[in-house]
Design a protein around this nucleic acid. Sequence first.
DNA 1: GTCTATAGAGGGATAGAC
DNA 2: GTCTATCCCTCTATAGAC
Lengths: 210, 210
Amino acid sequence: MATTTSGTRRRVGKPRGSYAKTDEKRRAILDAALEVFAQSGYRSGSIRDIAERVGMSEAGLLHHFPNKSTLLAAVLERRDDRAVQFIPLDENFGGRSTVNGLLELASYNASEPGVVELYCTLSAEGTSPDHPAHQYFIDRYEWSRGMIERAFTIIQAEGDLRPGVTPASAAARTLAMMDGLQVQWLLDRDVLDMTEELRNFFRTIVSYEL
Amino acid sequence: MATTTSGTRRRVGKPRGSYAKTDEKRRAILDAALEVFAQSGYRSGSIRDIAERVGMSEAGLLHHFPNKSTLLAAVLERRDDRAVQFIPLDENFGGRSTVNGLLELASYNASEPGVVELYCTLSAEGTSPDHPAHQYFIDRYEWSRGMIERAFTIIQAEGDLRPGVTPASAAARTLAMMDGLQVQWLLDRDVLDMTEELRNFFRTIVSYEL
DNA sequence: GTCTATAGAGGGATAGAC
DNA sequence: GTCTATCCCTCTATAGAC
């Protein structure tokens, strides 16, 4: 096999080193796009703004990404594993490790306001059926709920889920709590400690010490 | 006192009846604006779209509201008491009645997707400091947290708050839960019962039967 | 790979006629 | 109170030069 495809780029018959600058540009564009989409949302965020931040023209930017929605998809794809990396998913997947991972994620989020803004803004915007990221968010929530539900099921089997709590309900409520805390935190970062409140929430769900 | 001011309108020296049609138009505009701002947000929602829905020109609409942000303020002001009406605020304010009121509010919300969309979309958009509704949402959350905190303080005094739960934390988390459930509900209305999940949440906060 | 130029759509707001 | 006409801005995307 002589061809490798990475996204839409083709790297056939040329030395890799000559693409270093292109990849750097792409990364710079994605960083700027994250900022802009986070602050203005997708619909109101402009390619012009992104291009300015990265120091190039709109046409220059569109050489790397054919259009705006492709750029959004690339931003989401790039940041997607961010959350997942906090949770051991393979054979090390466990109940308590997932809960701890979510707490660490909340803590990490508090250090990256831009990313919090991005997901908060885009998930609300993305509730519209005609939004380019609509299906992305549907899939993302479905997957996350399932993952967290499995974690709580394990905790329940260990006898550490509080009476009356079901794994499915607790999973949906965990995501809701994380999302909702972010809104209040973005409005006023001093009014609320996201990690501490998420921990308080978990204390009402599981019976072991946290 | 010969003058009455209602918003920016002045009704001096003319019979009230002659304004019935104007008020009707204003209401129609506000209804359309709610739909548009709910579906597209403030920044991407257009006066043009709102005017079309109400069957008039942009200039005609702008006769009633001088500009776009004034229109947004009017939409928010009009729908603001919606939530408050579910909670007895005067001398009848109480712990359990507030919790019940919030459950009824969640139930009402599920029957008015447009209003849920509006607040979900705008509160996320409004986290930006330059958004015209930014301060509105800061004030709104602060007021709501205080109100709910007072309710939980009463419940605590009655010995019905679960051990380890503080009124302030429970208040912030109650709002977070309501907001977060709405996002998931808007993405897929069959995946989740907002009222039931809010009730499940309250069960982890208070110790009396719900 | 990046630019200029431009097309073509859509937006907020104002002036002035009726 | 509502309209048409208009101004001037912003936006995405494409064509084609370099």
